[in-house]
Design a protein around this nucleic acid. Structure first.
Lengths: 201, 201
DNA sequence: ACGAAGTTGGATCGGCGCTCCATTCATGGG
DNA sequence: CCCATGAATGGAGCGCCGATCCAACTTCGT
């Protein structure tokens, strides 16, 4: 016999597997990837997870919390996916390209990062860059400037790339050349920004 | 005698001064400046302009059109406000700082630009930078890269600045030092990015 | 066995962008 | 001079959103 609420409507049975914050965020990421930023609605989440609002809000503060945590997840993935490299310069390149690729694959990450540039995951990113620049014997102050310049540059180019992708949703033939452009531009920037270090190397 | 609609509700008299697209956008900018991005609602616009939805949608496609045009207006203001300067290098500095100040004064401009990096007004901005770099005898390809790097850097730093302002809504004592930092960082970037040109100068 | 604490589902609320249409008014052709 | 026409206007209403709230359910210590 189906139980009824006080208002007389039917009530679905409780889910078998228990919900968790991680599950919710993972579902949010999938929705964001498949449908873009505007596709992530609480309703869509309840449908995908076969649950209600209460369950979601029990594990998550609000929608912005959801977006922020999802973004952190992606960035952390980029960091952990970056293999250690003997040469700091190519390691930097790898890191920057990894960030670009991540935003290219999940455009909503770029938008969120430009909205909240001090997310913990992004600070970790700065930390890694700082260590690599340290290995390049870049002096302290310049190191900070360089990290900021690099990240801002990647975020900006990724945003432009996302805008391009929005304009023409197909013909990704020149996407590879675009990536190569970004790569070469960065390789130009690093030695150019620090001509002393570059000359020393 | 007050006229009544078919549903019997009262109808306000028609406004004396006629509406125009420019008026609507100006009102939108004022709302955005005073209350931030989320304060711009069609309802707020109707209240401020003492009008209805129909009048607004007759002059404007939709809300994104409103935001985009308002952003173009601000950027165009930065460009027209930049006085000609004999030295291309300080002219570049002025342009970059002008963009930063504009975003600092209207944070919603930064968010919109990162969402739509190819707005006509921003293209004009690139055009101006390109001309200045040409005056610096920067070769063609590097010129394009430099303009992109500069704009992306300013946008990124401005976004970080906006985030800072969001965190501490007061104590703008260190805002000046922040601006100076950005300025010196750019003066470092320009010669650093093109050590050849800088050495030649 | 039982009640407290932890979890879940969904009705509900206020507000949003936007559509639609009755109404108003300036204009110019007869 | 008049009135037909169409641009301009105001506002009710629609569908959807994020968020709240609470009854219903589960788990678990005792």
């Amino acid at each position: 016999m189906v139980k009824r609420t006080a208002t007389g409507s039917a009530r679905a049975p409780r889910r078998a597997d228990s919900l968790s914050r991680g599950l919710i965020i993972q579902a949010a990421i999938e929705i964001l990837d498949s449908g873009g930023e505007k596709a992530l609605t609480l309703r869509a989440l309840t449908v995908r997870l076969s649950t209600g609002y209460g369950a979601i809000y029990h594990h998550v503060a609000d929608k912005s919390d959801l977006l922020a945590t999802a973004t952190d997840d992606v960035i952390t993935g980029v960091l952990s996916g970056a293999v250690a490299d003997a040469d700091p310069r190519t390691a930097l390149r790898r890191l920057a390209l990894g960030l670009f690729d991540a935003i290219d694959a999940h455009p909503w990450v770029g938008a969120e990062l430009s909205r909240q540039p001090w997310r913990p995951a992004l600070l970790d990113f700065y930390e890694s860059i700082g260590r690599l620049l340290d290995a390049l014997d870049v002096p302290g102050k310049a190191r900070f400037d360089a990290a900021g310049t690099l990240v801002n540059y990647v975020l900006g180019v990724a945003a432009q790339n996302a805008a391009n992708a929005r304009l023409r949703a197909d013909s990704d033939t020149d996407r590879e050349t675009f990536l190569e452009n970004a790569a070469t531009q960065w390789t130009q920037i690093d030695p150019g920004r620090y001509p002393f270090v570059h000359a020393a190397a």
